[in-house]
C-alpha cells in the first residue's frame, strides 16, 4: 500500500512538472528512454530468475495450482473482450493489452507507453492501479461470496506482494502459497503477453 502511494506520488509529481515547465526533449522523446526500458526489463528478469524462494515453491506445486493464473488470463481477456465491448475508442487488442497488466501497473504502463502510446500507457496505469485497489477493498466480499480463489484471481500479478496479506487473511493461510505462485506466473507473463498482443 505504501509502495503504491509512493509510485503514484512519483507519477503525480511528474504530471505537475510536465504542466509547469517544458523539459528537455531527451527526457521524453528519445532513444535513451527505450534503452532505459531494456535495462529495466533486464533487471526485472534478474529479480525473477534470482528469486530462490519462488523456485523452491515451484518444486512442490500441484499442476492444478497453475489453473489459477490460467483462470486469471482467460477470465480477464474474456471479461475485457465481452463486458467492455462498448468502449469504441480502442481496438480489441489495445484493450486486451491493458488488461494483460493483471494489476502490475508499473511495468505494464511503462511498456505500453514505449511500444504503443502515452495515452494507452496512462490507461494501463489507471486500469491496473484500480485493479489492485479494488482487490484490496473487495477481498472480504469476494472470499465470502465467490470462493477462496476469487481474491487471488482478482489480484492477478499483485497476489504475490501487495495484495498477499489481505488475501491470506480472508482466503486462509493454505491459499497464501497458491496466491504466491499465481502472482509469480502472472508477473512473468505480463511483459510477454503485453508485447506479443501489441505486435500482432
Amino acid at each position: 500500500m505504501k509502495n503504491t502511494l509512493v509510485m503514484c506520488g512519483f507519477f503525480v509529481l511528474g504530471v505537475f512538472l510536465g504542466r509547469l515547465a517544458s523539459l528537455p526533449i531527451w527526457m521524453h522523446e528519445s532513444e535513451l528512454m527505450l534503452y532505459a526500458l531494456y535495462v529495466l526489463l533486464f533487471l526485472v528478469g534478474v529479480g525473477v530468475g534470482g528469486n530462490v524462494q519462488a523456485f523452491r515453491l515451484v518444486e512442490h506445486i500441484h499442476l492444478r495450482v497453475l489453473l489459477v493464473p490460467f483462470s486469471t488470463v482467460v477470465g480477464t481477456f474474456a471479461g475485457v473482450g465481452i463486458l467492455a465491448w462498448f468502449i469504441k475508442d480502442w481496438e480489441l487488442g489495445e484493450k486486451l493489452a491493458v488488461g494483460a497488466g493483471f494489476g502490475y501497473y508499473s511495468l505494464s504502463s511503462v511498456l505500453i507507453t514505449q511500444i504503443h502510446s502515452e495515452t494507452l500507457g496512462v490507461l494501463a496505469l489507471l486500469t491496473n492501479i484500480t485493479r489492485e485497489m479494488s482487490t484490496l477493498l473487495l477481498t472480504p466480499v469476494l472470499a465470502a461470496r465467490f470462493g477462496k480463489l476469487a481474491p487471488i484471481v482478482s489480484g492477478g500479478a499483485t497476489a504475490m506482494d501487495t495484495t498477499l496479506p489481505v488475501i491470506t487473511k480472508y482466503s486462509g493461510k493454505q491459499y497464501a502459497i497458491v496466491a504466491l505462485i499465481s502472482g509469480l506466473v502472472l508477473t512473468i507473463l505480463v511483459p510477454f503477453l503485453v508485447s506479443i498482443i501489441l505486435h500482432v
Partner: peptide
C-alpha cells in the same frame, strides 16, 4: 480515461472471478 479504466478493471475482475468459481 479514468472511466474507461474503471470499466476495464471491473471487466477483468468479473471475468476472472467467474472462471475461478468454476475452477
Amino acid at each position: 480515461l479514468g472511466l474507461q479504466a474503471l470499466i476495464l478493471s471491473s471487466s477483468g475482475i468479473i471475468g476472472s472471478v467467474v472462471i475461478a468459481c468454476l475452477v
